[in-house]
């Protein structure tokens, strides 16, 4: 029958397109899959067609449609042996959608959530390691976003806002690679806030800054910013002698 021919054709185009990374073949396959899918619904081959359609979207880089198709596949055929792959690719679609750190991170949050769901369902899964790497990368992206926003308050000399933002950052992201810099710039914000204060606030603020520098020292005694920390701490001590 017509649809059987189309199905064979589509699968051939899909296999070739996938192997040769030929997008035009994949696009043709996609059009055929879309045409035949209503006829195969509820039939034994349906499972395969639904998966291949989703995978074609995925291979074509249409990460806005692929996650929905994979999700549908997993809803229709939860017991399929492709379920794991589908779940992973659904999550991976969001991963690929995640934009650069300084844009809206809704997709990143969704990707982390989906990757986590995958890892919880298939802790020993084929793609578990990759999923872990992806999730870590995305978490670091979120950390970078929060860190850069805090750092911008420091750069634009809104020191109070910088301190508050770094505090939030340090509370929200334990184990982030940006922690050291966050500790340091928090202290530096406090220092710059203190020395630009009116005299009657200066002493308390200098002490607060000193406290934050020593916090940095406590965690990173041999840190990247140790030299500056030593300099600024010494400067604070000199200034404090005036009070």
């Amino acid at each position: 029958k017509d649809s059987a021919v189309k199905y064979q054709m589509a699968e051939k185009l899909y296999t070739e397109g996938k192997a040769e990374e030929d997008k035009s073949k994949l696009r043709k396959a996609l059009r055929l899959f879309e045409q035949i899918i209503p006829e195969f619904r509820g039939k034994p081959q349906g499972q395969r067609v639904v998966f291949l359609l989703a995978d074609t979207y995925f291979l074509l880089g249409d990460y806005f449609l692929s996650p929905f198709e994979f999700e549908r596949f997993n809803q229709l055929y939860p017991d399929s042996d492709k379920a794991e792959e589908a779940k992973f690719k659904e999550a991976a679609s969001y991963y690929y959608r995640s934009p650069r750190f300084n844009l809206d991170q809704t997709d990143t949050d969704k990707a982390i959530e989906e990757l986590q769901t995958y890892l919880n369902t298939y802790p020993e899964g084929e793609n578990a390691e990759l999923a872990n790497t992806m999730a870590t990368e995305l978490r670091i992206k979120l950390e970078k976003k929060a860190y850069e926003i805090a750092k911008q308050y420091h750069h634009t000399e809104y020191y109070k806002a910088a301190i508050a933002a770094f505090n939030n950052f340090l509370a929200d992201y334990p184990g982030s690679p940006f922690r050291e810099a966050a500790y340091y710039y928090r202290a530096e914000s406090a220092y710059l806030l203190a020395i630009n204060s009116v005299p009657y606030l200066m002493e308390t603020r200098l002490n607060e800054a000193k406290e934050l520098y020593s916090t940095y020292n406590k965690y990173y005694p041999e840190g990247e910013y140790s030299a500056q920390t030593a300099d600024y701490s010494a400067d604070i001590d000199t200034r404090l002698q005036n009070f």
Binding site: P99, R100, N102, L103, D104, T106, K145, E148, I149, Q152, Y153, T156, Y158, K160, A161, I163, A164, A165, N168
Partner: peptide, 23 residues
Amino acid sequence: FVTGNDKTKDHVIYRELLTKPGQ
């Protein structure tokens, strides 16, 4: 927070905000 900026970078938006953390 700023959400929905899928083109404009954070720093371009945050520098215009009159509300700051801790304020």
